[in-house]
Design a protein around this nucleic acid. Sequence first.
DNA 1: CAACGCTATTGACGCACGTTCAATACTTTG
DNA 2: CAAAGTATTGAACGTGCGTCAATAGCGTTG
Lengths: 205, 205
Amino acid sequence: MGHMTSPRTRMSPDSRREQLLELGVRLFATRSLEDLSIETLAEEAGISRGLLYHYFGNKQEFHTAVVQRAADDLFAVTAPTGEGAPLEQLAGSLERYVDYVTENYHGYLSLLRGAAGGHEGLREIYESARAALTDRLFEGPVAEEAAALGLTDTPAVRLLVHGWAAFTEDVVLEWVRDARGISRDELLLTLSASLPGILAPLRQA
Amino acid sequence: MGHMTSPRTRMSPDSRREQLLELGVRLFATRSLEDLSIETLAEEAGISRGLLYHYFGNKQEFHTAVVQRAADDLFAVTAPTGEGAPLEQLAGSLERYVDYVTENYHGYLSLLRGAAGGHEGLREIYESARAALTDRLFEGPVAEEAAALGLTDTPAVRLLVHGWAAFTEDVVLEWVRDARGISRDELLLTLSASLPGILAPLRQA
DNA sequence: CAACGCTATTGACGCACGTTCAATACTTTG
DNA sequence: CAAAGTATTGAACGTGCGTCAATAGCGTTG
């Protein structure tokens, strides 16, 4: 809550902006983007509304910055560790993704909803975050092993991989909401096995 | 354009409400829910803002009514015809779904975004529309033939079918945006073949 | 260490849009 | 044709976005 800080605390632009961004992401996890108003944020941060406009220009830019930050967090969490065999690294990324959604359910949900329902800029952020995740399948040492599973880098395969990302997103979200008796390991196995399962039909045509 | 209709045209409640709903759905196809303001609608319909409140109570209820109507349209379009073998009927539904998205791209996109980003009521409408589509797999004469493909009615299977719906939605949307050299028939085959592909891993565990 | 300059920060203003409600004017009825 | 019923309006209010000149904290300088 806004609290009783002394009126007018002067900070350096960098730390002030960082403070506002962090607070924005934290509040974003508990309410929708619409409800994350300039007014709310200013109150919680204990500053005037005008200052937010000084740092973010307008509501859209502020929302963009918050969503970008949240997407960056997700991307960082799922980054490959660089250890182990290529396919094991992919499995590890998927694992950390599932754990991230589990531990950060509300925040992740807000990110999805905000990006899906928001303006063009927000959707772009989310789309490129998702692209960054799946692009890992076609780059580096992983690509060769992946190709053996049907993951050649063609437009059709990319389309299905895009769809698989949507599938994974949906299933993980539903699973966190209600596990339906499925263990975490079973979920992970099912998700990774479904990718070749989706691609298989394509190899015959 | 609001136009030069005579000021104050009195209509029966039913036809007036219907007119406003239809106009709402039409405008909704070309802009976001946020931009579908009470003011915009009133202007386009050539009525006062107050009248909209008379019929829909408030903005949320108006949006709810519009989204519900759009979802009903989609559900009606993809309803099984009742002719042909069970599995053929499913294929037909999928076919009409793809065609609907193709011909109604902007409207469908608006529906998705509005439902995903909007308030709880909107998400419920969309979720139950999707559920209604996939529930067909587990009901009536289809269920028996479907069970042979791994579609037994268990929580785990339902979870994956839910995910398959998200997969299909995503792939069709992307395909309409850019076909990537894939024909409509190839798309339909790939989509229907991917469902057993997704379920296959589950049968071994 | 006091005056100064730079700029982070404020507060008041205007605007757009959602929302309410008493007044108004069609249409029907007796 | 008068009167009742109600579809419709328009003006008023609240809230949250966006702008900007005025203010005040903090480092610098003599």
